[in-house]
């Protein structure tokens, strides 16, 4: 469902189209913000809320595709819904390949647009949550002492306490204590959960 905090960004050089879309989105309770050009969008300070981008392909100056490339370069992963007054199949394929959520031709069916927006915002929300989660995990990780991290690495690798103690050159008791500290700080209920957490922190492994 739609949340009050989400925003839809509209970038189209045609004022009538922009306004119409804004009206449509508001009519279903979505918040929208309009931009006349890709540059205006890039210059804007955007709030940290789940969002998506309704982007016209053909615009004077920077085209929609240009903006998409720019956002990729800036590592801005706001989900993009392309619109075009022309059906340009190669363009559409390219746009989808580079990660656009949807490619709509004007005039479009209102439901198509709203579904796409929903999907896009949902995606963005998940991403943020994931990011948030990762941020949280990171914070917890920061709390670990270097020794605790060493222990954690070996725990994840599947070594027994006895083995860890031997490897690090301390007693098994010490290891047990440190292990407890790791689980507590990381707020992990079990070793598999700990493994998943670390996997999220370290996607490359």
């Amino acid at each position: 469902m739609v949340d009050q905090d989400s925003i839809v960004y509209i970038v189209d050089d045609d004022a009538a189209v922009r306004e119409a879309m804004d009206s449509l989105l508001r009519s279903v309770g979505l918040k929208a913000r309009m931009f006349v050009s890709a540059d205006e969008f890039l210059r804007a300070k955007l709030p940290n809320a789940p969002s998506c981008l309704l982007l016209d392909v053909r615009m004077p100056g920077k085209s929609g595709i240009d903006l998409q490339n720019e956002l990729l370069r800036l590592e801005n992963t706001v989900p993009i819904i392309f619109m075009t007054a022309h059906g340009d199949i190669p363009m559409a394929v390219r746009a989808m390949k580079t990660g656009a959520v949807e490619f709509l031709t004007k005039p479009f069916r209102d439901q198509d647009l709203l579904d796409a927006v929903q999907q896009a915002i949902g995606r963005d929300r998940l991403r943020r949550a994931a990011l948030g989660e990762i941020a949280a995990l990171h914070e917890r990780y920061e709390l670990l002492t270097p020794r605790e991290r060493d222990v954690m690495r070996l725990v994840i690798a599947g070594l027994l306490n006895k083995q860890i103690a031997a490897k690090l050159g301390t007693s098994e008791t010490t290891i047990k204590v440190q292990r407890g500290g790791v689980m507590h700080k990381m707020k992990a209920g079990s070793v598999p959960e700990l493994v998943r957490m670390i996997a999220k922190l370290n996607p490359q492994g």
Partner: peptide, 11 residues
Amino acid sequence: VNQPLTAIVTN
């Protein structure tokens, strides 16, 4: 033509 048409339909 599609621009005004889009505006019409969307409105």
